[in-house]
Design a protein around this nucleic acid. Structure first.
Length: 919
RNA sequence: GGGCGCUUAGCUCAGCGGUAGAGCACUACCUUGACAUGGUAGGGGUCAGAGGUUCAAUCCCUCUAGCGCCCACCA
């Protein structure tokens, strides 16, 4: 199992705590079961996130920014920051109890993994699966880098400014500026584009287009209308003069245009809009190909490096325009353009318009689609085996419904932009020569060699020149320039399951531990990480990277809100560990890990499980005080006392339940099974019922057996609980190891309790009866308002031989736990005594004057009503012929048994009630 | 627009064809010699609504209402 590598400079948050708790439960469980478990740890360099942090630190310290200090110096600062903060998260994982193989810790930027990244890149490049392309990318203007589609989030923006030319009032530019300063998005602007005649002269006709990004109009290369739109039929094929710019552009028919939206005529800006880019490609013949002008000298560099003006033609006089927008931020340019259009009388109206605006998930800056050269991974090709592996069930998602999400994404996958204009990351292993060639090699040496050979071959280099360069590092460095960009962090993460095991070398670890068994992760990174590991894993190793993908929920605060620093609702797992212990936190997370979408964590719950830990501690102490020491060669099967056989059977049942639940990733069921056994079975009943034996004058052999059994069951409990509460259980295991036979290994190494006692029906019947009896007596006393301390006699009415024997054997416990004075036997219940039903046995409580007869009548009536309702339900079914004909035999039998049991109970209750009436 | 999910006790959530559960909270009682971070007893649910399938529906199907998430969407 490989750990989802956390950000090396990050801190443990609740998501990590959940994720790693679940993994640790699996690791510990299987380790105890004798598996050779490798839980591979490591951390991620987290490109953008980490670089941003260091940049912010530079700014806070009022030091020169990264561009000023340069790449080398900046990277030194990042490494220094890594050294300073790195490892904190590893320490935190250790505090959580994560039993990774820490000696194998890896870092995505360490030497080995960097080599794997270079190898992967080169191999994919050779296979044509990585290529450089000029396409529209999501450009993050704040971070100054391209980002992948997945890193873009949509945010709804809605403005508030309204203006219409028809209303006659002039445009209040100051008011608009004020609105836009607060939120530059969220308005729809209607522009008139004058239609020209065949000679290029303006006519009176206008085409009105609507846009949310006015400044992009400078790059318009066409106007599109729907081919079936009646309103525009006569305009298709004609041209308009692009205002401000003056260029003539064509009105084209394209299905992309939606008659319902805006005016039905849409401006096409291929260089700044993904849809327009496609439309432009379809209409190059009609002149919509100005996207090619992008590299023209007419480009006006804006401060944000956004080339809005790529469409400008240099032979026009735009002095006024240039002066207005040159070098301006795009949102300033937006306002200027609107003002200029208004001035020209071509602004028809402005209206508020709610729409989704793409933002960078890290920077929160509005994304600008921009045409640039970037490296792409041919995800579509790689996706096919990744899809097949899940379709064929080689890799399975738990819960299964996530497979649909996975399919949906992979089936519609776009090329993955992997280059980032950042410095912190794996620099792309590509070198460029002066003759414009690109050499992709794993090392600089290899690239230079390839470049020199190629240069000679294509005649760009003389033989002598090449030979001279070979031994001239400076010359080589001048000749070949390495690609400046680094790879998307997720590129290295995608290799994680095999790169951490030594790939590309064929190591023993790779052979032994790959494919991994299971990946545990949150659903938020199914696309970012899981799908990409599948693609890369299958491509490079021809094997799936993992068989099971357990997808857990996200942790939210107790009201269900996503935790965030700005909301101030972040619950710090380390804080919870400090206050309640790692074991309590872990148990809470496991108990809440039911397969859903989110987990709302509340402190009360953690506190409750802290109490659970304390309970176990006290139970262990009780056992110690009472001499419950492990016995040499203790064999559950040889125990004789019903109590011991009963609790051993229950322990075996709990072990099986817990194991089954963990193996099927039902962590909450597993936690519940252990919890219930420890508290409700072992503490509440086993220890209580054992007290008379341990503390009374029982015979030494019986006492010894019970002591040994309790010690054995406690050992079982420690083992069952160990995957959840490793600290407490290991501690108790060690303490208990001080007496009795020596321990051969720490608890963590197992074994997991398998050898146990099968449920013993006789023991269950006997102990169960006692448990029920005590419960009934307590209940009736409480209901009748009898002070619990009042010791009363009980009378077994006409008991069977077994009951009589049992009652006598358990008399100490019954007396103690139910506050019974003495146990008698009679043929009939005495007058005025309360009557209880304990598994068909009538038990009378002669409470004499203590009891309020009316209350007792009410109690019996209530009880009778309840039973009657059950009988009615069962009888309705049993008298239904269809039910008898179609229900399975065992269900019918079950119903019949229930009817009889209820009827018997009813008869006895009615009898008691009748006696009461005669008093 | 496409998809996924949720609605069960006051709260947070399990369960998912045949007797509705947990934790917390609540009520009453209990300083009993492991534990008041505890013990005992108890109250509390037409399982969102309406249809359907079935001998039988909280559970399966359809629809409705409300809530949430993911993907796509800058006219």
């Amino acid at each position: 199992m490989v750990i989802p590598p956390p950000n090396v400079t990050g801190n443990l948050h609740m998501g990590h705590a959940l994720n790693n708790t679940l993994q640790d439960i699996l690791a510990r469980y299987w380790r105890m079961n004798g598996r050779d478990v490798l839980w591979q740890p490591g951390t991620d360099h987290a490109g953008i996130a980490t670089q941003m942090v260091v940049e912010r630190k530079l700014a806070e310290a009022q030091e020169p920014d990264r561009r000023t200090i340069g790449r080398e110096a900046f990277l030194k600062r990042v490494w220094a920051w890594k050294a300073e903060s790195g490892g904190a998260i590893v320490q935190q994982l250790k505090r959580l109890g994560a039993s990774c193989d820490w000696s194998r810790e890896r870092f995505t930027l360490d030497e080995g993994l960097s080599r794997a990244v270079a190898r992967a890149f080169v191999q994919l490049h050779r296979a044509g699966l990585i290529y450089k392309d000029k396409r529209l990318v999501n450009w993050d203007p704040k971070l100054q880098t391209a980002i992948a589609d997945l890193e873009v989030i949509q945010v709804e923006c809605k403005g508030s400014f309204k203006w219409s030319r028809d209303e006659g009032a002039p445009l209040n530019e100051a008011a608009l500026a004020k609105v836009l300063a607060r939120n530059p998005n969220g308005h729809l602007y209607y522009f008139d584009y004058p239609v020209v005649d065949s000679a290029g002269e303006e006519t009176d006709e206008r085409v009105t287009v609507a846009t949310t990004r006015p400044e992009t109009m400078l790059g318009d290369t066409a106007v599109a209308v729907h081919p079936d739109d009646e309103r525009y039929q006569q305009l298709i094929g004609r041209r308009v003069r692009l205002p401000l710019v003056g260029r003539l552009i064509r009105i084209v028919a394209d299905e992309y245009s939606d008659p319902e939206k805006g005016t039905g005529a849409v401006k096409i800006t291929p260089a700044h809009d993904f849809n327009d880019f496609e439309v432009g490609k379809r209409h190059t013949a009609e002149g919509a190909r100005q996207i090619n002008v992008l590299d023209a000298e007419a480009r006006v560099a804006l401060k944000d490096n956004l080339a809005f003006f790529d469409g400008l033609e240099s032979d026009h006089d735009h002095d006024r325009l240039i002066a207005a927008v040159d070098g301006q931020d795009r949102f300033v340019a937006r306002l200027r353009i609107v003002e200029l259009m208004a001035l020209a009388g071509l602004l028809a109206k402005i209206e508020p318009h709610a729409h989704m605006v793409p933002h960078g998930d890290r920077s929160n800056a509005v994304i600008e689609p921009w045409l640039t050269d970037q490296w792409y991974v041919a995800a579509k090709t790689l996706a096919q085996p990744a899809l097949a592996a899940v379709r064929d069930g080689e890799t399975q998602f738990v819960p299964k419904n996530w497979e649909k999400t996975y399919f949906e994404w992979l089936e519609n996958i776009q090329p993955w932009c992997v280059s980032r204009q950042l410095w912190w990351g794996h620099q792309i292993p590509a070198w460029y020569s002066p003759w414009g060639a690109c050499y992709v090699e794993e090392t600089e040496e290899a690239a230079f060699a390839a470049g020199l050979a190629d240069g000679v071959e294509r005649g760009a280099l003389g033989q002598d020149e090449a030979r001279a360069l070979t031994s001239d590092p400076e010359g080589l460095a001048r000749t070949f320039k390495r690609d400046e960009d680094v790879l998307d962090t997720w590129f290295s993460s995608a290799l994680w399951p095999f790169s951490t095991l030594g790939w590309p070398d064929e190591t023993a670890e790779l052979k032994r531990y790959y494919p991994t068994d299971v990946l545990v992760t949150g659903f938020d990174i199914i696309f970012f990480w899981v799908a990409r590991m599948m693609m890369m894993g299958l491509h490079f190793t021809k094997e799936i990277p993992f068989r099971d993908v357990y997808v857990h929920a996200l942790v939210r605060d107790e009201r269900g809100a996503k935790m965030s620093k700005s909301k101030g609702n972040v619950i710090d797992p380390i804080d919870l560990i400090d206050r309640f212990g790692a074991d309590a936190l872990r148990f809470t997370l496991a108990a809440m890990a039911a397969q859903g979408r989110d987990i709302k964590i509340s402190e009360a719950r953690v506190e409750g499980y802290r109490n659970f830990a304390t309970k176990l501690w006290n139970a262990s102490r009780f056992a110690e005080i009472n001499g419950c020491v492990r016995a040499v060669g203790f064999d559950p099967a040889l125990t004789r006392a019903p109590l011991n056989r009963w609790v051993l059977g229950e322990a075996a049942k709990a072990a099986a339940e817990t194991a089954g639940a963990i193996e099927s990733y039902r962590f909450n069921d597993a936690a519940a099974a252990v919890y219930r056994f420890v508290w409700s079975v072992f503490c509440d009943w086993c220890l209580e019922l054992a007290k008379p034996v341990l503390q009374g004058g029982a015979d030494p052999a019986a006492k010894a057996e019970t002591r040994a059994t309790i010690a054995y069951v406690l050992d079982t409990i420690y083992a069952l609980l160990h995957p959840f509460m490793p600290f407490l259980t290991e501690e108790l295991w060690a303490i208990k190891g001080e007496a009795g036979p020596p321990r051969s290994a720490p608890l963590a190494l197992g074994p997991w309790p398998k050898e146990g006692l099968e449920l013993d029906a006789n023991a269950e019947a006997e102990v169960g009866w006692v448990v029920d009896l005590i419960g009934e007596i307590r209940s009736v006393k409480s209901e009748m308002g009898v002070p619990p301390a009042t010791a009363t006699p009980i009378i077994l009415v006409a008991p069977s031989e077994g009951v009589a024997r049992g009652a006598s054997a358990w008399s100490d416990s019954i007396k103690r736990l139910a506050r019974v004075e003495r146990i008698e036997t009679a043929d009939a219940a005495p007058e005025g005594a309360l009557q209880l039903l304990v598994r068909d046995q009538v038990v009378a409580l002669p409470l004499g004057g203590i009891v309020d007869l009316a209350a007792e009548r009410a109690r019996l009536d209530k009880e009778i009503d309840k039973v009657q309702v059950e009988i009615d339900k069962v009888e309705t079914k049993l008298s239904n012929e269809d039910f008898l004909a179609r229900a399975p035999d065992e269900v019918i039998a079950e119903h019949e048994e229930r009817r009889e049991a209820f009827q018997e109970r009813l008869a006895k209750l009615a009898h008691a009630r009748g006696r009461l009436d005669r008093l």
